[in-house]
Structure formats: structure tokens, C-alpha cells
Amino acid sequence: MDYSATQSGFRQRKLQPNMRLRNSSMDGPDGSQLFEDTSGAGARPQAGYSRDQQAEGFAGQSILSDPMSNLAMAYGSSLASQGREMVDKNLDRFIPISKLKYYFAVDTVYVSKKLGLLVFPYMHQNWEVSYQQDTPVAPRFDVNAPDLYIPAMGFITYVLVAGLALGTQNRFSPELLGVQASSALVWLIIEVLAVLLSLYLVTVNTDLTTIDLLAFSGYKYVGMIVGLVAGLLFGRPAYYLSLLWCCAAIFVFTIRTLRLKLLSEAAAEGKLVRGARNQLRMYLTMSIAAAQPIFMYWLTYHLIR
């Protein structure tokens, strides 16, 4: 007798009762099956899901192919473009964004030269702005061209230094720093509006724009920062000395810059008219230049103690 065949027959007889018990446990009392066989359930929902996706795709294609929907989409895009053009046109009327790019066309070399010119303007000889085909060149190519980068950065730096000065005196608070920044901004706007009103009353024909006046009025923040930093580092006497130097420098810078702008149209007028207009223009130039040191002292003296 073969021993291996006997052993395999014994294993089959041992497994048959277990299989019968398993089958009987899945059957009900009446012989019906209690549980369904879900081994192939995964394939049927996938087929249904793919049919749903195909139906949605056909519906989307039918909507896109509808001429009314295409017409509505085209009409909506045209309305959006017209609205954007209208907003750009009205915004450019009050805020010339296209011109603002010119005033921020600076580089590191220009900024360093301009800062040196604002602090030491006495040795500079040529103050005329260079032109190329009746258009002034960008500030990065001419140190005499006005810009808005230095005034904007100067204003922000002035507010930060003012907060530092208030902190060293245990007087810092967000409300007080906000009052300091808003007061400096309001005085700057008042100064520019006063100059525009003076130019209108004197009837001066000049190529100065509002942005030019804003740039020239904002250059004084450089001297204010120098005075505040000197006062914080070396005390009140250093503040007065450095501020006095910067006030004299901005006075000379403003006179030599605005003199060419305000007196450029005087050569085309008659002798008598030119003499009277020259006096008014010179007085206006001196007033604008003299106002810079006053604002510099007014906005900084209370920050140094």
C-alpha cells in the first residue's frame, strides 16, 4: 500500500466536513442563501460610473455647441473688456499710471548720485534735464530728472525713524505713529496744493506737473532722516547741526532746480512783461525753497529730546 496516497485520502475526508459546515452556515433554514456573493460587485458600479461620465461629457458638449451659449459668452467677454477699458481711462485721467512708470525708472547708481546731490548740491554745475526727441530721459540716465522713488522711500523711512525715536523716549504707540505719518502726508498735500494755486494765480507757463511738485516736495525727507538719525545717535546738538546743513542744502537744490522750470518761458515775452513776471517767478521760487526748511523743522523737532 502506498503511504502517500493513503495520507492524501485522509486529508480530503477531513476537509469535506468543514466545507459542508461552511456552506450550511451560509444557507438559511429553508435552504435559501443568506448572503449574496459580492465578489464581482466592483465591476458593475465602475461600468455605471463610466456611463455617467460619458453622459455628462455629452451634455457639456451639447451646451458648448449651443449657439445661444456661445453668443452669451462672447457678449460677456465684450462687456468685461469694455468695463476694463473704461476703468483704465478714468483712472488714468486722475492718476496717470503710465507716467508714474517714468518716475520710478531708477537704479542704484542714480539713487546714490541723487542722495549725494540732495546733501551736497553746491558743487553741481549742470542742472538742466536732458531730453531725447522732446521727451525727458528716464531718471536712471539723468541725475537732474525728478523721481518718486526717493520721496516714497524717504517718507516710509521717516515714519520708521520717528517710531524709533518715540520708542527710545517710551512714548511709542501705534496711534501716535499713525498720527505722525498722517500729519506728514497731510502737510505734503497742502504744500503741493499751495504751489499749484500760486502757479495759477501768477499765471506761470511751465512744464511742471503735479507729480514733479510732489517729487520736489518729497526730497526734504532725506534731510529730515539725516537730522533725526544724528539726533538719536549724538544728541540734540548734532540734530540741530545736521538739520541746519540739510536745510541749506535743500534750499539751494530747490532754487537751482525750480529756477529753470519757472523761468523757462520768460525769454518769449516782452521786456516789461518779462521783468514783472520774472520778479513774481523769483519770489515764488524763493517761497517754495524757504518752505522746505520750515517743514523739515516742524516735522522733526518734537521727536528729539
Rank of each mutant, 00 (worst) to 15 (best):
M1D: 11
Y3T: 09
S4Y: 13
A5R: 15
Q7K: 14
F10E: 14
K14F: 08
P17K: 05
N18K: 14
R22N: 02
M26Y: 10
D27S: 15
G28Y: 09
G31C: 01
Q33W: 12
Q33T: 14
Q33C: 08
L34N: 02
F35K: 10
E36K: 12
D37F: 06
T38H: 15
G40S: 13
G40C: 09
A41R: 06
Q46I: 10
G48H: 09
D52I: 14
E56V: 15
E56G: 11
G57C: 03
F58S: 15
A59N: 11
G60P: 05
S62C: 01
D66C: 01
M68T: 14
S69D: 07
A72C: 07
S77Q: 13
L79T: 09
L79A: 13
S81E: 12
G83Q: 14
N90V: 00
L91N: 12
R93C: 02
F94G: 08
P96C: 13
K99F: 07
L100A: 02
F104K: 04
D107H: 10
T108P: 05
Y110A: 05
S112M: 11
G116H: 12
F120S: 12
Y122F: 14
M123R: 09
Q125C: 00
Q125M: 03
W127L: 06
V129C: 06
V129P: 02
Q132V: 06
Q133C: 10
T135N: 13
V137I: 08
P139Y: 04
P139G: 09
D142P: 06
P146W: 02
D147P: 07
L148W: 07
Y149V: 15
Y149C: 13
P151C: 01
P151V: 02
P151W: 06
A152D: 03
A152W: 04
V159K: 04
G163P: 04
G163V: 01
T168W: 12
P174K: 03
P174C: 04
Q180R: 11
S182A: 14
A184P: 00
A184V: 08
W187T: 03
L197N: 04
S198C: 00
S198H: 07
Y200S: 15
V202A: 13
V204P: 10
T206H: 10
T206N: 06
T209V: 00
D212V: 09
D212K: 02
D212T: 01
L214E: 04
F216T: 05
F216A: 08
G218C: 00
V222T: 07
V226L: 12
G227R: 07
G235K: 03
R236P: 06
Y240N: 04
Y240G: 05
L244R: 05
W245T: 15
C247W: 08
C247G: 08
C247V: 10
A248T: 06
A249H: 00
F251W: 03
F251D: 05
I255G: 07
R259A: 02
L262A: 09
L263C: 14
E265S: 15
E269Y: 13
G270M: 03
R274E: 00
L280E: 07
L280C: 10
Y283P: 02
M286C: 15
S287N: 00
A289T: 01
A291F: 13
P293D: 01
I294L: 12
L299Y: 11
L303G: 03
R305H: 10
R305Y: 04
